[in-house]
Every structure is written in structure tokens, then in C-alpha cells.
Simulated scan of single mutants.
Amino acid sequence: MTALLDVRDLSRRFPVAAGMLHAVDHVSLRIEPGESVGLVGESGCGKSTLVRMLTRVLDPSDGAITFDGAEIGAIPAGRFTHRPERAAIQMVFQDPTDSLNPRFTAFDVIADPLRRLKGPWTRETLRARVEELADMVGLPRPLLGRFPHQMSGGQKARVGIARALGPQPRLLVLDEPTSALDVSVQAVVLRLLDELRRTLGVSYLFVSHDLNVVRLVCDRVVVMYLGRVVESGPVASVFDRPGHPYTRALLDAIPAADPTRVRSRIRLTGEPRSPINPDPNVCRFYGRCPIGQEVCAVTMPALAEVAPEHHAACHFSGGEGPLS
């Protein structure tokens, strides 16, 4: 199967006073048609910079982004706005309040990308399409005339999802889409997103700090640390047998309802290494890693298969060493 999105050795560096900040460093990932991929990692790991490049609002320093067989990474961000692929890659933002124009009604919020990226429309066909999208996300039609401040958090989240689905995208990038919602509303919105993916066949890149959410809605997961992918694979394989100590530390941080099932937890100490002019021969996790050895200080570990379709970048992920 041809991947919908194929990212190869993608990097983004920013000049700073002390040299070059490596925000994203040789990242590769694939998303298949209809697949949901989770992207996780602590703040500062490069998730947001990677998303900005994939949605083509930021140009990469190196690497390739192939979308539906076409190379789009070389298209300048300013020109990509006018490309047909713009409609095929849409985004649902983290805060449904800040991401909606307060001067627009819900109808106008949903209709705006339709006017810009699709059409031509008559007044009747545009209204019919907006109402269809409202029905699709479970937003009552009478709410289409309301402004964002007149709606609840869950209703605003549905408006944001409808807006993103309007141009009929093939890839939806979801940046913490439920983090600003109450827990009870989160569950409803997550079920809605899962149903929409299965019904419409759209692919998801689901950015989240909540690993329980990733386990619930994603097929595969990609773990980033300091600009690099340190682990990737099927959700069940990564969660049940993490191959990288950083992934295991993230999983160990999930509260456990049954104390008897809590395994020996990995606790991280020290500070992250600087992303400015990083040594290409030193593991990015070295110095903070609880199982770091001398080899980690002289050889950068490459992503290697530790299980079917499951890869980790650790010298000790193959069953021989402290992580086993």
C-alpha cells in the first residue's frame, strides 16, 4: 500500500546566538490511508515544529515530505496556500476558543474554508454543505447562528472539527484536540473522532501528551525526544513492551488504578541535553537516561526493529542489557 504521507529525514534548524538549534532532526514517518498515528513526547521535543512543516506553514531545512505521491516539502509555505493539496491537509487546534474567530458565527467559521478552498457555491449550496457538516459532528443546526462565546466547550470543539472536515481532507492533524475540555466531554469528542475516521476514511496525525488517549484512538504511535524519533510502532506493541527507556518512563508516569500492577518505575533525573549544536555521536537521552552506558556517549543509536513493525533507537532495546 502506498503511504498517504511519507516523511523522510525531515529536519528544521533555527539560527540562534550560540549556533543552530536543532528543533527537528532527521525525522521519518509514514501514515497510511485511513490510519491514525499518535505523536507523543514532552514539551520541547519538536512535535509542534514537525506539525508546522507537515501542514506546510513552515519550510523544512532538509528532507522530503511526500503527500499522496507528490513531493510537497519543496513547495515554499507561502505558495502552498494556493495549491490543491492545501484542502487535503487540515488541522484541528488545541483550544477551541482561541482557534475560532470571535466575530464569526458558527456558520461562518465552518463556511470560511469552504469559500476559500472549495466551490464555487451558491447561497443555497453553501448552507446545505454547512448544515451537512454540522449534522456530521452532532452540532444542532440552531447553534449555527451563535458566536463562539455563546457555546459550550464541547460545542466549540464540534465547530472546529466541522471546519476542518469541510474541504474534505485526506489527512487531519489534531493538536491536543480534547485537552481543553472537561473529562466527560473528552470521551464524547474522542468517540466522535473515531467514528468520523472510520466513516470518512480520513487519516489522523494525533498529537497528544495523554498516552491513554493515544491508546484509545490510534493504530500506531511515534515517540519524539529532543527533535528525534526514539521509538515507533503499533500501539499495543509499544505500550506492552517499550523498547526505549524514555518511552517506558512516559508509560510509567500514567497513574495506575491497581497498585499491584505497578512495575518497577523508571525515574528520570538530570536535565535534557541542549538542542543547540548537539553532538551527532551522542545519544540525545544520555545523561538523563537511567540505563546509560559509555557506548551511549560515543555512538548515536539508530532506529532498529525490536518487534514486527516496532522500532526503537536504543543500544539496549534488543533484549540484551538493562532495559530487558
Rank of each mutant, 00 (worst) to 15 (best):
Y225C: 05
T269P: 03
P234W: 02
A164H: 03
L4D: 04
P33V: 10
V262H: 06
L54T: 06
A157M: 10
G270W: 11
G34M: 12
P259N: 10
V221P: 03
D59F: 06
T81V: 15
A23T: 03
G69M: 13
S61A: 06
G34F: 10
P245H: 06
P322T: 07
P301L: 09
T199A: 12
F206N: 03
P167N: 13
A249I: 12
H311Q: 14
L226M: 12
A302D: 14
D252L: 08
A128C: 03
R103F: 13
E294T: 09
R115M: 13
I291W: 09
D68C: 02
A64D: 11
S203M: 02
G292P: 03
A253H: 11
L5D: 00
E131L: 05
D258M: 05
D175E: 09
R265S: 10
G19H: 09
V40A: 11
P177C: 10
G319M: 14
N277Y: 14
L29C: 07
G46E: 00
A23S: 15
M300C: 14
A64W: 04
A88I: 05
S11N: 07
P76M: 07
A236R: 15
V185Q: 11
F285I: 06
S11Y: 00
L143W: 08
P102C: 02
D25S: 06
V282A: 09
Q150H: 12
P255G: 12
